[in-house]
Design a protein around this nucleic acid. Sequence first.
DNA 1: TGACAACTACCATTAGATAGGTAGAATTTG
DNA 2: CAAATTCTACCTATCTAATGGTAGTTGTCA
Lengths: 194, 194
Amino acid sequence: MSPTSADTLTRLMDVAQDLVQRRGINAMSFQDLSEAVGIRKASVHYHFPSKDDMVVKLLERYREQFGQNVQAILRGNYSGAEKLKKYAGLFCGPLQQPPYDRGCLCGMLAAEMITLSESAAESVRSFFEENQAWIRTILDTGIEDGSLKLGGSSKAAAQFIFASLEGALLIARTQGGMKRMQADTRTLLQLFRP
Amino acid sequence: MSPTSADTLTRLMDVAQDLVQRRGINAMSFQDLSEAVGIRKASVHYHFPSKDDMVVKLLERYREQFGQNVQAILRGNYSGAEKLKKYAGLFCGPLQQPPYDRGCLCGMLAAEMITLSESAAESVRSFFEENQAWIRTILDTGIEDGSLKLGGSSKAAAQFIFASLEGALLIARTQGGMKRMQADTRTLLQLFRP
DNA sequence: TGACAACTACCATTAGATAGGTAGAATTTG
DNA sequence: CAAATTCTACCTATCTAATGGTAGTTGTCA
C-alpha cells in the first residue's frame, strides 16, 4: 500500500486535520473533505457519523501523537533547558510544510470553543491541562539541574509558557511564519535562562 | 436617546463584534445579527452590503478604539513598567463582562485568517504591526528609565510580548477566565523586571 | 418631495444529515 | 464444504434548514 493511498479513514483524518488547522472547524465542510479524498459526501458520514464525531476523533489522534512526541522528550537524557527547547520546537511543526499556514489543532479549536460539543471542548481543555503539566515537569527538571531559572512558581511559569507558545503560533501564521515562530521561541527560552 | 437604543448601526456593530469575539467570524450569521438587534436580515444588508464589509468596518472601529486606549497610556506620565502593565491590562477587557468568554477581535480573526478577504486580513496584520510598535516604544521607555530589563532587542521582546498576550487571552477564554489571564500577565511582567 | 431606514419576498447555494441500496469480502452455520 | 448470512465501504438521491445576498416596496420625517 503506497503512502498516498493509505486507508480511507486515515486519509479522511489527515485531510480533515489539515482543513481545521488552516481554516478552522466552521470554515470546513464534509463537502471539502469528500472532494479532497475522492469519495462522496454520504460516504464521509460512514466514517464520521457527525461533524462533532469527526472533531472528537481528530482530537483523540492529535493528543495521542503529540503526547508521544512529548514523552520522547521527557524520557530523553537532556537538561531541563534542552527539554524545554525541544518541547517548544514541537509548536513549529504545523508551520514546517507547505502551505506553511497551519495552526495548532487545539489552538484553532480554542478560538471556536463555544461552537464545539461539550465532549470536544472537554478534550481541548484536557490537551491544555496535560501540556501545562508536562511543561511543569520540564521546568522542575531545569531548576534541579540548574539549567533554568524561574521567578515564580513552576505552575505559573508552565501556564505562561504554554499560552505564549500557542500565541506565538497564532501570530506567526499571519505574520512572518516560521522565522517569526523561531524568533519568539528564542525570546521565550532566553527569559528562563539562569 | 437612551444607551440601550443607540442608533441601529452602532447596535449592529456592537452585536456583530460580540458575536465574532465569542464564536468567530464563520460561526456568526446575518440571521443572528438581525435577531439580536430586532431588524430583518435584509435590513442588516442595508448597513453592511456584505459580510466582508462588516468585518472591515468592525476592524476599523476596533483598531480606532484600541489605538486610543493605547495612546492614553503612552501619553501618560508613567514609568515604562507601569505603561507595560496598563497596556497588558487592555487584553483583559474582553473577559471583563458576562459571559466572560470573549477573545480579542483580531485574535479570533487571526485564527480564521485564510477565510477573510484580503482587505480584512490586511487590517488584522496592521493591528498586529501597530501593537508591536507601541509595545516597542513602551519597552524603550522602560529601558531608559530603568524600570524594565530586556535580554535581547526591544523589537524581539515586543513581538514576543504581543504574541504572549494574544495567547494568554486565547487560553484564558477556555480555562480559568480572568483569573488565568491575570496570572499569565503577572508572570509576563515579572520576566522583564530589572 | 426625497432620502433614509426599514420592510416583504425572494433566490441560488450550501450545510449537515438520512434513507435506501449494492458489490464484494468475511464469517457463520447446516 | 458450501450455502446463508452479515459486514464493510461505498453509492445515488433526497431532505430540511440555513447561508449570503438581491429586488422592489413602504412608512417616516425634515
